[in-house]
Amino acid sequence: MTLVKEQSEPEGADDKGGTEPAGDGYVPSPRRLERERHRRARTRRATAIAAASTLVTGVVLYLVVVSAPGWQRTKETFFDGQYAREAFPKVLEGLWLNVRLLLVCGAAVLVLGMLIAVARTLRGPVFFPLRVLAAAYTDFFRGLPLIINLMIVVLGVPALRLQGVTVDPVLLGGTALTLTYSAYVAEVFRAGIESVHPSQRAAARSLGLSNRQALRYVVLPQAVRRQVPPLLNDLVSLQKDTGLVSIGGAIDAVRAADIIAGRSLNYTPYIVAGLVFVALTIPMTRFTDWVTARMDRQRAQGGTT
């Protein structure tokens, strides 16, 4: 296989800083070759076992589901191919609205969340009211159920018939989402800021950086980097919750499914919409896992705390 290549690379060369010269006439010993042969055989065996076990599990699951009482009716109500084909394009069309909401609200949430988090860490008596306001904001919106927030903003605000205030359910729904998620994200940022060791701020201050400069160049970059996984988590959450703007009548993926389901009394469109959301979140979740794992690995490599 690639034995020839491995020969020229002594093990651990990357962290030794290349102290050992390549091409020092190293020939793998029979012991090493035997060990590698054994490892390869073991990997092949493990793959075969995994494949067989997966197949058996799949067949058993299938038989259990299909032979369950009521499977026929469940299939007709939830998994009807005809309705699925009808709903799918409509749902996709609606999903475009969800995606746009995610992008716009996501950006707004990151900016607002950061501002609130920074406001909460400001020192000095001048900022006292700002600190209190920011704290009150996060406490309130983190506690308020999103659905109530949405009902108040999307249904309640138009009822006021205020001059110059929009009644567009999409704009209002987006506003409500931003209000709630800014509070979540502000807490994530604040936790990040507090996780940066005080000695970092002290080091910055002793170099003559002002409080603001220390925050901007030293504390915030580290805080944001550390909080990428939880931030992505909140964005995944936001992605799903964009479906809630449908309560105001905006035609998003959920509402599109709702229309067909209401007409046909068949629930397949909901399944379709649900699966579309799942399909949309899976890449995001995998990405989050990947980033988290990568950061854990970096920290494990003796990164600074």
Binding site: A202, A203, R205, G208, S210, V218, P221, Q222
Partner: peptide, 20 residues
């Protein structure tokens, strides 16, 4: 205090380099 610190260099036991 910022003006004072500008004239003094400090090295800590724990280095405190900025990791990013």
């Amino acid at each position: 205090p910022d003006a004072v610190r500008r004239r003094i260099g400090v090295v800590f036991q724990a280095y405190n380099l900025f990791p990013h």
